[in-house]
Design a binder for these strands. Structure first.
Lengths: 154, 154
DNA sequence: CACTTTGTTCAAAAATGATTGAACAAGCCC
DNA sequence: GGGCTTGTTCAATCATTTTTGAACAAAGTG
Protein backbone atom coordinates (compact mmCIF):
# COMPACT_ATOMS: atom_id res chain seq x y z
CA UNK A 1 0.00 0.00 0.00
CA UNK A 2 1.44 3.32 -1.04
CA UNK A 3 0.06 5.14 2.00
CA UNK A 4 2.12 3.04 4.36
CA UNK A 5 5.22 3.45 2.25
CA UNK A 6 4.89 7.23 2.24
CA UNK A 7 4.26 7.26 5.97
CA UNK A 8 7.47 5.29 6.50
CA UNK A 9 9.30 7.76 4.33
CA UNK A 10 8.17 10.65 6.48
CA UNK A 11 8.85 8.81 9.71
CA UNK A 12 12.48 8.64 8.64
CA UNK A 13 12.37 12.19 7.38
CA UNK A 14 11.20 13.77 10.59
CA UNK A 15 13.57 11.62 12.61
CA UNK A 16 16.44 13.21 10.71
CA UNK A 17 15.08 16.56 11.81
CA UNK A 18 14.89 15.35 15.39
CA UNK A 19 11.14 15.02 15.61
CA UNK A 20 9.08 12.12 16.91
CA UNK A 21 7.79 9.36 14.77
CA UNK A 22 4.12 10.20 15.25
CA UNK A 23 4.64 13.58 13.61
CA UNK A 24 6.06 11.87 10.57
CA UNK A 25 3.16 9.44 10.48
CA UNK A 26 0.57 12.15 10.62
CA UNK A 27 2.20 14.45 8.13
CA UNK A 28 2.95 11.53 5.85
CA UNK A 29 -0.62 10.36 5.76
CA UNK A 30 -1.92 13.86 5.11
CA UNK A 31 0.68 14.23 2.40
CA UNK A 32 -0.71 11.26 0.42
CA UNK A 33 -4.32 12.03 1.16
CA UNK A 34 -6.45 13.66 -1.47
CA UNK A 35 -9.19 14.35 1.02
CA UNK A 36 -8.90 16.18 4.34
CA UNK A 37 -8.65 13.99 7.43
CA UNK A 38 -9.94 14.45 10.93
CA UNK A 39 -8.12 13.56 14.13
CA UNK A 40 -10.28 10.50 14.36
CA UNK A 41 -9.41 9.44 10.81
CA UNK A 42 -5.73 9.62 11.71
CA UNK A 43 -6.19 7.59 14.86
CA UNK A 44 -7.97 4.88 12.89
CA UNK A 45 -5.74 4.89 9.84
CA UNK A 46 -2.43 5.00 11.69
CA UNK A 47 -3.34 3.05 14.79
CA UNK A 48 -1.99 5.74 17.09
CA UNK A 49 -3.63 7.06 20.23
CA UNK A 50 -5.86 10.08 20.37
CA UNK A 51 -3.25 11.74 22.59
CA UNK A 52 -0.50 11.33 20.04
CA UNK A 53 -2.70 12.55 17.26
CA UNK A 54 -3.75 15.61 19.20
CA UNK A 55 -0.20 16.56 20.15
CA UNK A 56 1.17 15.79 16.73
CA UNK A 57 -1.44 17.93 15.03
CA UNK A 58 -0.70 20.80 17.36
CA UNK A 59 3.03 20.62 16.62
CA UNK A 60 2.43 20.43 12.89
CA UNK A 61 0.09 23.38 13.05
CA UNK A 62 2.77 25.33 14.91
CA UNK A 63 5.20 24.58 12.13
CA UNK A 64 2.71 25.65 9.52
CA UNK A 65 2.99 22.16 8.04
CA UNK A 66 -0.74 21.50 8.04
CA UNK A 67 -3.86 23.58 7.59
CA UNK A 68 -7.31 23.19 9.07
CA UNK A 69 -10.16 23.04 6.63
CA UNK A 70 -13.89 23.02 7.05
CA UNK A 71 -15.63 20.03 5.52
CA UNK A 72 -19.28 20.56 4.67
CA UNK A 73 -21.24 21.37 7.77
CA UNK A 74 -19.34 19.02 10.08
CA UNK A 75 -18.41 20.16 13.52
CA UNK A 76 -15.12 18.41 13.79
CA UNK A 77 -12.04 19.93 12.17
CA UNK A 78 -10.24 18.40 9.25
CA UNK A 79 -6.65 18.80 8.17
CA UNK A 80 -4.63 18.89 4.99
CA UNK A 81 -0.86 18.96 4.50
CA UNK A 82 0.88 22.15 3.47
CA UNK A 83 3.16 21.02 0.70
CA UNK A 84 5.02 24.19 -0.23
CA UNK A 85 8.64 23.72 0.73
CA UNK A 86 8.96 27.42 1.44
CA UNK A 87 6.35 27.27 4.12
CA UNK A 88 7.77 24.14 5.72
CA UNK A 89 11.26 25.52 5.83
CA UNK A 90 10.03 28.83 7.17
CA UNK A 91 8.20 27.10 9.98
CA UNK A 92 11.12 24.89 10.83
CA UNK A 93 13.51 27.81 10.97
CA UNK A 94 11.14 29.87 13.07
CA UNK A 95 10.27 27.12 15.53
CA UNK A 96 13.38 25.00 15.71
CA UNK A 97 16.37 27.02 14.65
CA UNK A 98 15.96 30.65 15.60
CA UNK A 99 15.21 29.94 19.26
CA UNK A 100 18.41 27.92 19.54
CA UNK A 101 20.52 30.57 17.85
CA UNK A 102 19.00 33.10 20.20
CA UNK A 103 19.70 31.16 23.37
CA UNK A 104 23.15 30.29 22.07
CA UNK A 105 24.01 33.96 21.80
CA UNK A 106 22.93 34.51 25.38
CA UNK A 107 24.99 31.64 26.65
CA UNK A 108 28.06 32.91 24.85
CA UNK A 109 27.69 36.25 26.53
CA UNK A 110 27.60 34.55 29.88
CA UNK A 111 30.71 32.65 28.92
CA UNK A 112 32.47 35.86 28.03
CA UNK A 113 31.50 37.18 31.42
CA UNK A 114 33.07 34.19 33.09
CA UNK A 115 36.17 34.30 30.91
CA UNK A 116 36.83 37.93 31.83
CA UNK A 117 37.56 36.90 35.40
CA UNK A 118 40.24 34.43 34.37
CA UNK A 119 43.52 35.11 36.17
CA UNK A 120 46.22 34.08 33.73
CA UNK A 121 46.41 36.57 30.85
CA UNK A 122 47.49 33.97 28.28
CA UNK A 123 44.58 31.79 29.25
CA UNK A 124 42.24 34.77 29.14
CA UNK A 125 43.43 35.60 25.67
CA UNK A 126 42.94 32.05 24.49
CA UNK A 127 39.42 31.90 25.85
CA UNK A 128 38.58 35.23 24.32
CA UNK A 129 39.73 33.94 20.93
CA UNK A 130 37.68 30.79 21.23
CA UNK A 131 34.56 32.62 22.33
CA UNK A 132 34.90 35.11 19.51
CA UNK A 133 35.04 32.20 17.18
CA UNK A 134 31.90 30.78 18.69
CA UNK A 135 30.14 34.07 18.18
CA UNK A 136 31.28 34.07 14.62
CA UNK A 137 29.81 30.60 14.10
CA UNK A 138 26.42 31.75 15.25
CA UNK A 139 26.62 34.87 13.14
CA UNK A 140 27.39 32.77 10.08
CA UNK A 141 24.53 30.48 10.92
CA UNK A 142 22.22 33.43 11.19
CA UNK A 143 23.31 34.70 7.79
CA UNK A 144 22.64 31.32 6.22
CA UNK A 145 18.98 31.24 7.19
CA UNK A 146 17.60 33.85 4.81
CA UNK A 147 19.71 32.41 2.03
CA UNK A 148 18.28 28.98 2.70
CA UNK A 149 14.76 30.32 2.76
CA UNK A 150 15.32 32.07 -0.51
CA UNK A 151 16.92 29.11 -2.21
CA UNK A 152 14.21 26.76 -0.99
CA UNK A 153 11.47 29.16 -1.98
CA UNK A 154 10.52 26.87 -4.91
CA UNK B 1 34.54 26.95 36.12
CA UNK B 2 34.60 28.00 32.52
CA UNK B 3 35.41 24.48 31.29
CA UNK B 4 32.17 23.11 32.63
CA UNK B 5 30.19 26.01 31.23
CA UNK B 6 31.62 25.51 27.77
CA UNK B 7 31.00 21.78 27.97
CA UNK B 8 27.36 22.48 28.82
CA UNK B 9 27.15 24.80 25.87
CA UNK B 10 28.32 22.10 23.51
CA UNK B 11 26.11 19.45 25.08
CA UNK B 12 23.15 21.59 24.09
CA UNK B 13 24.71 22.36 20.75
CA UNK B 14 25.19 18.78 19.65
CA UNK B 15 21.75 17.84 20.95
CA UNK B 16 20.27 20.33 18.50
CA UNK B 17 22.14 18.49 15.78
CA UNK B 18 20.80 15.18 17.01
CA UNK B 19 24.00 13.87 18.52
CA UNK B 20 24.56 12.34 21.92
CA UNK B 21 25.59 14.29 24.93
CA UNK B 22 28.97 12.61 25.30
CA UNK B 23 30.04 13.96 21.94
CA UNK B 24 29.25 17.46 23.07
CA UNK B 25 31.15 16.94 26.28
CA UNK B 26 34.25 15.70 24.54
CA UNK B 27 34.29 18.30 21.82
CA UNK B 28 33.46 21.01 24.33
CA UNK B 29 36.36 20.13 26.58
CA UNK B 30 38.78 19.96 23.67
CA UNK B 31 37.44 23.29 22.47
CA UNK B 32 38.43 25.07 25.70
CA UNK B 33 41.69 23.19 26.12
CA UNK B 34 44.93 24.85 25.22
CA UNK B 35 46.77 21.56 25.48
CA UNK B 36 45.98 18.30 23.68
CA UNK B 37 44.11 15.71 25.70
CA UNK B 38 44.26 11.93 25.70
CA UNK B 39 41.32 9.57 25.99
CA UNK B 40 42.27 9.05 29.58
CA UNK B 41 42.33 12.77 30.28
CA UNK B 42 38.79 13.02 28.94
CA UNK B 43 37.58 10.12 31.05
CA UNK B 44 39.00 11.74 34.15
CA UNK B 45 38.00 15.31 33.42
CA UNK B 46 34.46 14.55 32.29
CA UNK B 47 33.68 11.56 34.44
CA UNK B 48 32.53 9.49 31.48
CA UNK B 49 33.39 5.88 30.76
CA UNK B 50 36.24 4.71 28.59
CA UNK B 51 33.67 3.25 26.23
CA UNK B 52 31.89 6.55 25.73
CA UNK B 53 35.13 8.38 25.25
CA UNK B 54 36.35 5.88 22.69
CA UNK B 55 33.15 5.97 20.68
CA UNK B 56 32.81 9.72 20.96
CA UNK B 57 36.34 10.29 19.75
CA UNK B 58 35.77 7.99 16.81
CA UNK B 59 32.62 9.84 15.78
CA UNK B 60 34.31 13.21 16.13
CA UNK B 61 37.24 12.00 14.08
CA UNK B 62 34.82 10.84 11.40
CA UNK B 63 33.31 14.30 11.32
CA UNK B 64 36.71 15.89 11.08
CA UNK B 65 35.89 17.76 14.26
CA UNK B 66 39.03 16.71 16.08
CA UNK B 67 42.61 15.95 15.10
CA UNK B 68 45.10 13.54 16.58
CA UNK B 69 48.41 14.99 17.60
CA UNK B 70 51.61 13.47 18.81
CA UNK B 71 52.78 14.73 22.19
CA UNK B 72 56.48 14.38 22.87
CA UNK B 73 57.50 10.76 22.74
CA UNK B 74 54.34 9.40 24.35
CA UNK B 75 52.72 6.30 22.97
CA UNK B 76 49.14 7.24 23.59
CA UNK B 77 47.37 9.55 21.18
CA UNK B 78 46.25 13.03 22.04
CA UNK B 79 43.50 15.09 20.51
CA UNK B 80 42.74 18.70 19.75
CA UNK B 81 39.56 20.30 18.49
CA UNK B 82 39.27 21.45 14.89
CA UNK B 83 37.79 24.88 15.22
CA UNK B 84 37.36 25.98 11.60
CA UNK B 85 33.65 26.20 10.91
CA UNK B 86 34.24 25.21 7.31
CA UNK B 87 35.66 21.90 8.32
CA UNK B 88 32.94 21.17 10.86
CA UNK B 89 30.19 21.98 8.44
CA UNK B 90 31.83 19.94 5.72
CA UNK B 91 32.06 16.93 7.95
CA UNK B 92 28.52 17.27 9.13
CA UNK B 93 27.19 17.52 5.61
CA UNK B 94 29.26 14.59 4.45
CA UNK B 95 28.45 12.30 7.36
CA UNK B 96 24.95 13.29 8.39
CA UNK B 97 23.21 14.97 5.51
CA UNK B 98 24.36 13.52 2.22
CA UNK B 99 23.66 9.91 3.21
CA UNK B 100 20.11 10.83 4.11
CA UNK B 101 19.52 12.74 0.90
CA UNK B 102 20.90 9.78 -0.96
CA UNK B 103 18.69 7.20 0.68
CA UNK B 104 15.74 9.56 0.39
CA UNK B 105 16.17 9.65 -3.36
CA UNK B 106 16.17 5.87 -3.48
CA UNK B 107 13.05 5.60 -1.43
CA UNK B 108 11.25 8.06 -3.63
CA UNK B 109 12.07 5.99 -6.65
CA UNK B 110 10.56 2.97 -4.98
CA UNK B 111 7.50 5.03 -4.19
CA UNK B 112 7.17 6.03 -7.82
CA UNK B 113 7.36 2.38 -8.72
CA UNK B 114 4.51 1.59 -6.37
CA UNK B 115 2.47 4.58 -7.51
CA UNK B 116 2.68 3.48 -11.12
CA UNK B 117 0.58 0.43 -10.36
CA UNK B 118 -2.25 2.50 -8.92
CA UNK B 119 -5.57 1.69 -10.60
CA UNK B 120 -7.52 4.93 -10.52
CA UNK B 121 -6.02 7.44 -12.97
CA UNK B 122 -6.96 10.50 -10.93
CA UNK B 123 -5.32 8.94 -7.90
CA UNK B 124 -2.29 8.01 -9.95
CA UNK B 125 -2.00 11.57 -11.16
CA UNK B 126 -2.26 12.95 -7.65
CA UNK B 127 0.43 10.62 -6.36
CA UNK B 128 2.68 11.45 -9.25
CA UNK B 129 2.34 15.14 -8.44
CA UNK B 130 3.12 14.61 -4.80
CA UNK B 131 6.14 12.43 -5.51
CA UNK B 132 7.47 14.93 -8.01
CA UNK B 133 7.19 17.51 -5.33
CA UNK B 134 9.12 15.30 -2.95
CA UNK B 135 11.87 14.90 -5.50
CA UNK B 136 11.95 18.60 -5.91
CA UNK B 137 12.38 19.06 -2.17
CA UNK B 138 15.43 16.85 -2.15
CA UNK B 139 16.86 18.54 -5.19
CA UNK B 140 16.50 21.92 -3.51
CA UNK B 141 18.12 20.52 -0.41
CA UNK B 142 20.99 19.24 -2.47
CA UNK B 143 21.48 22.65 -4.05
CA UNK B 144 21.56 24.30 -0.66
CA UNK B 145 24.53 22.32 0.59
CA UNK B 146 27.30 23.87 -1.49
CA UNK B 147 25.85 27.30 -0.85
CA UNK B 148 25.89 26.61 2.87
CA UNK B 149 29.46 25.36 2.73
CA UNK B 150 30.53 28.43 0.84
CA UNK B 151 28.72 30.86 3.13
CA UNK B 152 30.09 29.18 6.23
CA UNK B 153 33.59 29.01 4.80
CA UNK B 154 34.73 31.77 7.17
C1' DC C 1 -30.65 19.76 31.37
C1' DA C 2 -28.75 15.21 30.16
C1' DC C 3 -26.32 13.07 26.55
C1' DT C 4 -23.10 12.89 22.73
C1' DT C 5 -19.24 14.31 20.13
C1' DT C 6 -14.73 16.30 19.76
C1' DG C 7 -10.57 17.24 21.41
C1' DT C 8 -6.95 18.16 25.31
C1' DT C 9 -4.09 17.01 29.25
C1' DC C 10 -0.90 14.57 31.80
C1' DA C 11 0.73 10.65 34.79
C1' DA C 12 2.19 6.10 33.86
C1' DA C 13 4.01 2.71 30.63
C1' DA C 14 6.61 1.61 26.68
C1' DA C 15 10.10 2.40 23.40
C1' DT C 16 14.23 4.28 22.05
C1' DG C 17 18.83 5.66 22.45
C1' DA C 18 23.10 6.41 25.19
C1' DT C 19 26.33 4.89 28.58
C1' DT C 20 28.76 1.73 31.20
C1' DG C 21 32.22 -1.57 32.26
C1' DA C 22 34.16 -6.02 31.85
C1' DA C 23 36.33 -8.79 28.48
C1' DC C 24 39.30 -8.57 24.80
C1' DA C 25 42.93 -7.26 21.23
C1' DA C 26 47.20 -5.12 19.92
C1' DG C 27 51.38 -3.14 20.75
C1' DC C 28 55.27 -1.90 23.54
C1' DC C 29 59.03 -2.89 26.87
C1' DC C 30 62.02 -5.40 29.89
C1' DG D 1 57.66 -14.54 26.72
C1' DG D 2 55.08 -12.15 30.32
C1' DG D 3 53.50 -8.12 32.09
C1' DC D 4 52.16 -3.23 31.17
C1' DT D 5 49.57 0.30 28.69
C1' DT D 6 46.26 1.93 25.47
C1' DG D 7 42.25 1.53 23.26
C1' DT D 8 37.97 -1.12 21.28
C1' DT D 9 33.76 -3.83 21.49
C1' DC D 10 29.27 -4.95 22.81
C1' DA D 11 25.67 -6.92 25.96
C1' DA D 12 23.49 -5.20 29.90
C1' DT D 13 21.93 -1.23 32.24
C1' DC D 14 20.34 3.32 32.67
C1' DA D 15 18.23 7.72 31.12
C1' DT D 16 15.42 10.18 28.17
C1' DT D 17 11.71 10.72 25.10
C1' DT D 18 7.52 9.27 23.20
C1' DT D 19 3.19 7.16 23.42
C1' DT D 20 -0.79 5.70 25.62
C1' DG D 21 -5.28 6.05 27.59
C1' DA D 22 -8.30 7.45 31.12
C1' DA D 23 -10.04 11.57 33.07
C1' DC D 24 -11.53 15.90 31.92
C1' DA D 25 -13.28 20.19 29.48
C1' DA D 26 -15.97 22.43 26.07
C1' DA D 27 -19.42 22.79 23.04
C1' DG D 28 -23.28 21.01 20.33
C1' DT D 29 -27.96 18.70 20.27
C1' DG D 30 -32.47 17.31 21.36
Amino acid sequence: MIERQVVEFFIDGVKVLGMPRSIGEIYGLLFVSQEPRSLDDLVKALGISKGSASQGLRALKGLGAIREVQVGTERRTYFVASVELKRLVGGFIREQIRPHLESGRNKIHQLEETARSEEDPARRQFLSDRLNRLEHWLKSGGRLLPVAQKLLGE
